[in-house]
Design a protein around this nucleic acid. Structure first.
Lengths: 185, 185
DNA sequence: CCAAAGAAGTTGAACTTTCAACACTCACCT
DNA sequence: AGGTGAGTGTTGAAAGTTCAACTTCTTTGG
C-alpha cells in the first residue's frame, strides 16, 4: 500500500483554526445582537427589516418578487412565505403585474414605510456600536478589503464545470435612507 | 437651548453601508458554500458537524449538555432537540450523570466518530477554498485582528467609556483533530 | 396555431429554531 | 427535617426555512 499520496488532507494550523472559529463567532454574536435589537425595539425580524430595506431602496417602492429574491439571495419560496406573513401584518402589499400576468409586484405600504423609519435609527446605532465604533479606520479598511476579496473568490471561481453561474455586473445601487442587510440564516 | 440634539441619527456613510452589506454577504455566501458541501458530501448538517467537533475535542469524547451548549453558544433547548435527532441517527448517545442526577452526558458514538472523520477532509478543503486560499497572509492577519477586536467589544462592552479595554484570557483550548465552527444560523 | 419547454409565484409537508412551560434535583436556610 | 429558590435538561407549540410539487402564463419551434 503506497500509504500517502492520494488523499492527504492539509489540515488547518492552530492559527487558522482559531481564525476560522473566531470569524464564525464574530458574525454569530454580532448578528445576535443586531437581530435582537431589531426585534425587541421595533418588532421587526431581520427578515422583515431586510425586505423593507430593499423596497424602500427601490423606485416606486415596489419590486417584482423574483427581483427581490435575487437581491436578497433568498429562495423564491422562502420569500413568498415571508411576504405572506408581512402582508398579513400590513407591511407590504401584493399587486398584479400588467406586463406579465404570471408575475407580481411587492409594494411597500405606508405602514411598512413607517415601520422601517421607526426601526432604522436604533438599528444603525446598534450596528455602529458593535462594528463601526469599535474598529479603527484602518481596521475597517482592511475588513472591506477582505470582504471584497472573499466575495470575488466566491463569485467567479468557475472551477471546472457548471455553465450557468454567471453573475456579472454587481448592480447594487446602494442608495437611500436606511442601512442594508443580507440574511443569514 | 440647542433645540434638536436629542434624537438625530448619525446615519451610515455610503462606504460604511457598503461595508456592512458586504460583510453580511460575505458570511452568508461563504457559509452557504460550506454548509452545502457538508450536507451533500457527508450527509451532516452544520449543526451535526459542530456538535461532533466539540465532542471530538473533549476529554473522553463526552460533555455535559450545558457545557456543550455554552461552548456552541446554543440555547439548551435547541441543543436538546438537535441531540434527539442525532441520537436517533446513532451519532451520539446520552448517558446519565452520576455526580448530578439532574444532568446528562452527551457521548460520541463510534458511528459519530467515523462520521466526522469522514466529513472533515472535504470540509477543511472547502474552508481553504473559500477563505484561506484566497486571502494573503497579511489579509488573514488583519482579519484575525478585526475578529479579536469585535469579539472583545461584544464580550465586555463596558457601557461607559473604558480606557483600558482589557484583553482577558479567552480560554479557548483549541485542540485536536478537526476544524471548528460556530453556528450560524 | 398548437404542443412542449420554461419561467413566475404559490403551496403543503417536513424539518429546524425559538419560546415558554415543565419535571426533577440540588443547595441553602431556619 | 422541610420549604424555597435556583440549576439541569426536556417537551410541545408556534414561527421560520427548505424541498418538491403544482398552477398559471409566456415563449419557442414545428
Amino acid at each position: 500500500m503506497s500509504s500517502k499520496l492520494a488523499n492527504m488532507t492539509k489540515w488547518l494550523s492552530d492559527g487558522e483554526q482559531r481564525l476560522w472559529r473566531d470569524f464564525l463567532r464574530m458574525h454569530n454574536d454580532l448578528w445576535a445582537v443586531v437581530g435582537r435589537d431589531l426585534q425587541t425595539r421595533s418588532g421587526l425580524s431581520p427578515g422583515d427589516f431586510e425586505v423593507l430595506v430593499h423596497l424602500t431602496d427601490s423606485a416606486g417602492h415596489r419590486l417584482r418578487v423574483t427581483e427581490l429574491a435575487q437581491t436578497m439571495r433568498w429562495e423564491r419560496s422562502r420569500l413568498s412565505h415571508q411576504l405572506t406573513r408581512m402582508e398579513k401584518r400590513g407591511l407590504i402589499a401584493r399587486r398584479d403585474c400588467p406586463e406579465d400576468a404570471r408575475g407580481a409586484f411587492v409594494e411597500l405600504t405606508p405602514e411598512g414605510l413607517s415601520a422601517i423609519e421607526g426601526a432604522a435609527p436604533s438599528h444603525v446605532e446598534t450596528v455602529r456600536g458593535v462594528l463601526f465604533d469599535v474598529l479603527t479606520p484602518r481596521q475597517l479598511e482592511s475588513l472591506a478589503d477582505v470582504c471584497a476579496t472573499v466575495l470575488a473568490g466566491l463569485d467567479g471561481p468557475a472551477p471546472a464545470e457548471d455553465p450557468g453561474a454567471g453573475q456579472s455586473g454587481s448592480a447594487d445601487p446602494g442608495s437611500s435612507t436606511v442601512p442594508g442587510m443580507t440574511g443569514r440564516r
